[in-house]
Nucleic acid binder design. Sequence first.
DNA 1: ATGATATATACTAATAATAGTATATACTGT
DNA 2: ACAGTATATACTATTATTAGTATATATCAT
Lengths: 127, 127
Amino acid sequence: MEASEIYKCIADPQRLRILNLLEAGPLCVCHMQEILEVPQVKMSKQLSSMKQLGLLKAHREGTWMIYKLVDPVEGLITANLCYLREAACAECNQLQRDLTKREKLILKVTKIENDCPQEVCQQITCC
Amino acid sequence: MEASEIYKCIADPQRLRILNLLEAGPLCVCHMQEILEVPQVKMSKQLSSMKQLGLLKAHREGTWMIYKLVDPVEGLITANLCYLREAACAECNQLQRDLTKREKLILKVTKIENDCPQEVCQQITCC
DNA sequence: ATGATATATACTAATAATAGTATATACTGT
DNA sequence: ACAGTATATACTATTATTAGTATATATCAT
């Protein structure tokens, strides 16, 4: 994959946030939507463009679609996320907040609502 | 500066190449033009957009305009150039070739033609 | 089969980015 | 003042990206 394609992808803050979330583990669309507070259409279109680009893959679990980063993760993505998580800019702080929000959400849907896609809830110790 | 602005900038291979060249030292417009083989208008417009963004600064030396990276160089730029110079993709290889071409050109204009902007030719041992 | 939930796609409108041509400016040497 | 070189800008045409609304598909529970 060419570098410019990757940069074009992460030049959109929303897409960068998606990659940031997924680097921490797979997530289903509706939960990403909830974390990022973005309309469904936009979410879906961005995910599909990233899938097409070869950064993400998806599979279905019931009515949920679970997205994850392809393995191995594109090095340029990893390197930049790593850099940004330490850096100081509005967008960088957002990435941290998103990860926190993700933790809380997974806990909620898993332990409290008991309604979590298997692959997502596996990330916490209860199941 | 927000990360997305920087990514939008380097998402254009041409602009990335400019940053790559300038990280090795200041250069005047016409020499960058020669190295990148790009029309004057395009060169000028890209430089001015990067200057406006706050990544570059310029000063005049006779009829030449010498561009350089602002100091300190934006960390995200440095980190990415560093990564890409080691990486393997068409654009990454191009960056290496550009640096070689830059060396040769500076040598030519300095030693052979004896017609080099002071700040540029300072980079080689002869003057 | 029907309704509910989650997700994707088609289509359109709106906006932004790029490229090209022509022209302008700044400086130098004569 | 004039010609030549280097660079920048204005304007226009073209193309790409994004956003929004409506609609379609897939799965599940009843």
